[in-house]
Design a protein around this nucleic acid. Structure first.
Lengths: 167, 167
DNA sequence: CCTTGTCCTGGAGCCGACTCCAGGATATAT
DNA sequence: ATATATCCTGGAGTCGGCTCCAGGACAAGG
């Protein structure tokens, strides 16, 4: 009951080259080869590779994943280290998500900026009269717009934290 | 009222080298130089650069940002194009966030896996007896655990969508 | 037997996004 | 006047994560 590299490639949605690259990089030490040198993946191997891909998706580098896999090879004595590592990366991931959500708020603000500009037919509605400068506290105007249309002002929080506003 | 490259670097939290790299890459065509060839950034320039950094944070490539900036130089006739571009990238970003949240669910599952293993002192509690194989429907057990402890089962949705489960 | 398909290795190439010079000009502080 | 800081350009180097050969082995179908 085992799979070839091509089958695993399809199963996991990554190329065979990528799988070989991972193996070269030492993060697939558990994958065994048969008599004629071909890789044979067990269900368990595939399972582990899903975890690896998950870590990769979380932005963990191949080098760090390698650390995790090394621990695994050492057995139960490293359970705690592995737990710590995962926790660290989970916190990291949480930060990433939060950052992206902030970016999203800003993008939405810019979308509002352009949507209103498109409606007006000109960007000038956002400029200080007779200049090419954007109105300094345009962000406040946007916040008002959010309030008026009954939307949650996630942007307020964001502009305080990040100082993305124009001062 | 203008800033040197060093001042902007501090203001935006990116290196002067990065700013020069952006300029070389053509995404800062609005930055002017003074008589002796030094860059002078206006408030408006800094404002625009925040937008650029926002797009970068959203995972937009320098090449794509360049497209946006080119449109901007063409004036009001491209307002709609710019709006479309932002919308596209916003959708993209939303997908990214959703993906990361899925990854987060899986990471939490793995954390549970290791926390319980640490408590038990061995990983074997998750194996099929007398093998080194992980219990096939361990994910269900985790779902139960979530239910029992009154947590929202974001994992269920996730495992259906992504087939990250072991079958 | 020959073709087609899948696999192997080692190593080169590529891409994006920086990052780091060398060599030179100007500015500021003492 | 000298030292230190900041700026400039052009171009080379780095790094991670693939991606793509070349050259060769074996397997299965017609």
């Amino acid at each position: 009951m085992s799979y070839s590299i091509g089958q695993v490639s399809k199963k996991l949605g990554i190329t065979v080259d990528t799988i070989r690259y991972y193996d070269k990089s030492g993060i697939l030490p558990f994958v065994k080869k048969n008599e004629i040198g071909r890789r044979e993946f067990t269900d368990n191997d595939v399972h582990l590779m899903r975890t690896i891909i998950c870590l990769k998706n979380a932005g963990v580098s191949v080098a760090d994943i390698s650390k995790f896999i090394d621990y695994r090879l050492q057995g139960d004595s490293t359970l705690n280290e592995r737990y710590q590592l995962l926790e660290e990366h989970r916190k990291d991931l949480q930060q990433q998500i939060t950052d992206l959500q902030d970016t999203m708020s800003y993008l939405k603000f810019k979308e509002w900026y352009y949507q209103t500009a498109v409606e007006a037919g000109t960007e000038e509605i956002h400029f200080v009269p007779n200049t090419n400068e954007v109105i300094p506290d345009l962000a406040d105007e946007y916040s008002n717009h959010l309030k008026e249309t009954g939307q949650v002002d996630e942007f307020q929080r964001f502009s305080n934290v990040k100082d993305y506003r124009n001062r």
